[in-house]
């Protein structure tokens, strides 16, 4: 049975997002106000898109990694590395374009390193990427020499604070990346290969999928995404903060993927839903900021909402929902 298109949009994630946004509106009546100012949109909703973009970008790469039954803990550290590379290069007089290209290349290389550990040495992904999670931040601190490297290159700053058609550049980049990667995996057989490797790597290999190459590419994509996020975050504050850039964001990215309904056991995945997951997380953060709760409540509120979303998504809750619908259906038929 084909579901009505409207029903396909109406899933746990979009309902949760609508719920969080409504809650924000309830706590802060001006939440949906959007003004046009200095050639760009201005408002809390725009903040949600702008601030949620780095995690959304991480989530794009993370979804694909998790779909192969892996995980990439190093994305936060890779963000710091990429930011540090871009910032030190523009400070040393290279053009913003060169700096960005090199930073993206370094991020991708970090991903390839993870991929080699996972695919060739068969190290468990959580351990393999933990290596770079620890070492990467040290590497970033080495590049910046422990201080915040500030820069004033307008092109690089544009990546973080600029706007395109009135929308924040970070959100536009996230959207483009999401669409590009989704098309690349869904309009080709790659998505199927990823799911196959995630469900059973040996079976997939026997079926003729080059699982090693696939795994390395998937981790490289995650590293690339992390580099994009790192450049955006550095550009946003006009400085590379090796100690704090991307700190704990790997956990937010994994959470976004999980909220998006992708199983940590590999297989079934959805990139747009993971991006919505990232926006849900950010909507909570922004909501807490405008609501005026004391900061001691931040984490408790966040945890409460996340538990609620995950319970709603759990197979048991879904079955109960279907069951009650069916029952309601029976009763209405005479």
């Amino acid at each position: 049975m084909r579901r009505h298109p409207l029903m396909r949009i109406l899933n746990a994630q979009t309902v949760a997002l609508a719920g969080v946004l409504l809650l924000n509106w309830f706590l802060f009546p001006g939440f949906f106000d959007i003004a046009w100012q200095d050639g760009r949109f201005f408002g809390s909703l725009i903040d949600v898109l702008n601030r949620g973009a780095p995690v959304a970008i991480l989530a794009v790469g993370m979804t694909v990694v998790i779909a192969t039954k892996g995980v990439d803990l190093s994305v936060g550290a890779v963000m710091a590395v990429a930011g540090a590379v871009a910032a030190t290069m523009v400070v040393d007089g290279y053009s913003a374009f060169t700096a960005i290209v090199v930073a993206l290349a370094v991020g991708t290389l970090c991903g390839v390193w993870n991929g080699l550990l996972v695919a060739l040495l068969d190290i468990q992904p959580i351990i393999a990427t933990l290596v770079l999670m620890v070492a990467g931040r040290g590497l970033a601190q080495l590049i910046t020499e422990g201080s915040i490297v500030t820069f004033s290159d307008p092109h690089l700053i544009f990546m973080g604070t600029g706007s395109f058609l009135g929308f924040p550049m970070a959100a536009v980049i996230a959207l483009v990346l999401m669409i590009a990667v989704t098309l690349a995996v869904r309009r080709t057989a790659i998505g199927l290969f990823i799911e196959a490797v995630g469900i059973n790597r040996s079976a997939a290999t026997f079926a003729g999928i080059r699982s090693r190459m696939l795994l390395i590419s998937v981790y490289a994509l995650s590293g690339f995404c992390a580099a994009v996020a790192g450049i955006i975050v550095a550009a946003d504050i006009r400085g590379a903060d090796a100690n704090n850039s991307g700190l704990w964001l790997e956990l937010d990215a994994i959470l976004a993927v999980v909220i998006g309904g992708t199983s940590l056991l590999g297989g079934r995945f959805s990139i747009p839903m993971a991006v919505i997951g990232a926006i849900i997380i950010q909507a909570m953060n922004t909501g807490i900021l405008v609501s005026g709760f004391p900061p001691e409540f931040n984490l408790i509120v966040k945890a409460g909402v996340i538990i609620l979303i995950l319970v709603l998504q759990s197979p048991i809750a879904q079955q109960l929902l279907i069951f009650s619908r069916r029952n309601a259906g029976k009763r209405s038929t005479p």
């Binding site: 903040d47 903060d241 405008v290």
Partner: peptide
């Protein structure tokens, strides 16, 4: 009027201030 944590970092400081500006009449 408002008090929130910015975790001693630049990016969180910026994000929290954006929220405060929205919440306090621009």
């Amino acid at each position: 009027a408002r008090s929130q944590t910015g975790d001693f970092t630049r990016s969180k400081g910026k994000e929290v201030m954006e929220g405060f500006i929205k919440a306090e009449n621009g």
